[in-house]
Amino acid sequence: MLETTLCGVTLKNPVIAASGTFGFGAEYDDFFDVGKLGGICTKGLTLHPREGNPGLRVWETPAGMMNSVGLQNPGIPVFLERELPRMRTLDTAIIANVGGGDLEEYVEGIRLVSGAEGVDIVELNISCPNVHEGGMAFGIDSDVAAGVVAAVRRVCTKPLMVKLSPNAEDIAAMAIACEQEGADAVSLVNTFKALAVDIHTRKAVFDNVTAGLSGPCIKPIALRMVWEVARAVHIPVVGIGGIATWQDALEFIMAGATAVQVGTATFIKPTTMLDIIDGLERYCANEHLTSLSTVCNILGTVPNCNILRRIP
């Protein structure tokens, strides 16, 4: 019932662990069978290892959290040697999330990762708000993003999914640009650029001043963006942002998402994604649906949405 095809790859279900919130999968394997998930996005990888940001890295907010991890990762060669073989035993789709400081690092990183056996999809991260150079810098302006996607597309031998930033100037135009340059799917959203101030020290809480906001508080905005993008492109859209229940996931699917990713909600309860999968299964059974795709993008067929279709 829940089996889903995402750019040619068959997923057991449309529920995927979001990048940076699920390590390389093995950490949560102590708590539940992660093989039940539709897929796992790796922590954001870069060609060269990164130590990540100094100072505080997490701050709780009402219904959310801010993070400033800054793409700490062992580098792609170490990932391929040490983490990927273990991930491959987990029996779920492997989505390699790749970031970079400059165009060359993106291209070389994706060349390496996409050539590796066991990587099912490459998720190009042009949306990390926590690194100084690169990262989100490529995800604001559609023309700049188009350049990265075009260059990466030439070397990427696996399905290419581009992860978009909610901080983009125009999210629908951004998605269209990615589609035109050969992206097979888009995923959105990454975290929102946000600020917290420590009133006692009279300074920003984070050394980097701003940090990325995630969790239930971003859900309605993320959902609106997914809906706008789903209307603008013909490639699959993967919905991300504050999803914590099966009802949340279904909202994204009805708004046009083929699959969803869950991040912060896993911190609330390690088995959140299993609850979401169970809930979606029960929903399909109760509604006598043979497939969730029946309700995918169903919002688009509601007449009162037509006026809004003109959004780029």
Binding site: T21, G52, R57, V58, W59, V69, Q72, P270
Partner: peptide, 25 residues
């Protein structure tokens, strides 16, 4: 400060002579 508590999110670094380690894991 921690989020996952189990080693998956990297928000709890401890700088050591061997690089950043995770306080939780």
């Amino acid at each position: 400060r921690m989020a996952c508590g189990i080693g998956a999110c990297l928000v709890c670094p401890c700088p050591t002579v061997q690089g950043n380690q995770r306080v939780c894991a």
